[in-house]
Amino acid sequence: MATFGNGSGATPGAVGQGRGITYPDFSSPTVDKVMVEERAAGLGKRSIKGPAKIAGLKLAISMMDLTTLEGKDSPGKVQQLCQKALRPHERADIPPCAAVCVYPKLVPVAKRAVEGSTVKVASVATAFPSGLSTLEVKLADVRQAVELGADEIDMVIDRGAMLAGEYRAVYDEIAATKEACGHAHLKVILETGELGSYDRVRKASRIAILAGADFIKTSTGKVTPAATPPVTLVMLEAIRDHAHATGRRIGMKPAGGIRTAKQALHYLVMVKETLGDAWLTSDLFRFGASTLLNDVLMQLEKERTGAYQGGDYFSKD
């Protein structure tokens, strides 16, 4: 069993030895590129209309991590974002978002703004977005974010180590970060756009899950391509197989590049078809997005009024 972290994700049985630590088996099935792309595309072809569409869009809002991760972020901008997360629209039937996602320095601002609500504060940490600082710096980054009040930590893995095949190093870092998180939930960003193949995405998903991730997340949003349906499907399948083997439910967060209501529904269809209804909750599925919310709101208003909406009528966040 792993000696780092809480060990809750480690699979008993298959093990490897190294540096005095016992590691779980990282081996994972290979991914059929053609079929996974076909299936992901096929799941996007469903026509979802009327009440199902409205329900799906509201669910998508309740799963959204409203995100601002720019160098120019200011307390004012974050406050505005939090207001939008608390009350995305004047309509009472539209739920609040799941969380706001900000840089560590802005966590206290966000925390004050969402106090007393269901909206969580997530913070990126571990030298986001590159993840190329020393482990001590990264762990200090995490501890500080948690001390400042972050409910959730979005960490990045060391893609260089992942690509070099140093799986144990990747595992150790995630496990150490999990330990540093304490009560905060840990989302592990794989940055799939830099991993290069579905096989590596699948393997990274497994390593993250075994090391104690509560959520696995596709991307930082700083690299193109970010979240794509096939990559998300590969990660969902890793979550599914882990749930079958151990009964433990890991969450999924596609982030970056999801801009339209139609895309959001596509992702929800993939989740339902791969993991089932149990995952259709903000505890186990999130969208990392900033511009998606307005498009979803515009679609909801279109359903209510019958008229196509214009950007001028929705707050810019």
């Binding site: 019958g306 008229a307 196509y308 909406q309 214009g310 950007g311």
Partner: peptide, 9 residues
């Protein structure tokens, strides 16, 4: 009629 109701137009 749909374009006449379109808020962006």
């Amino acid at each position: 009629p749909h374009l006449a109701a379109h808020m962006e137009v």
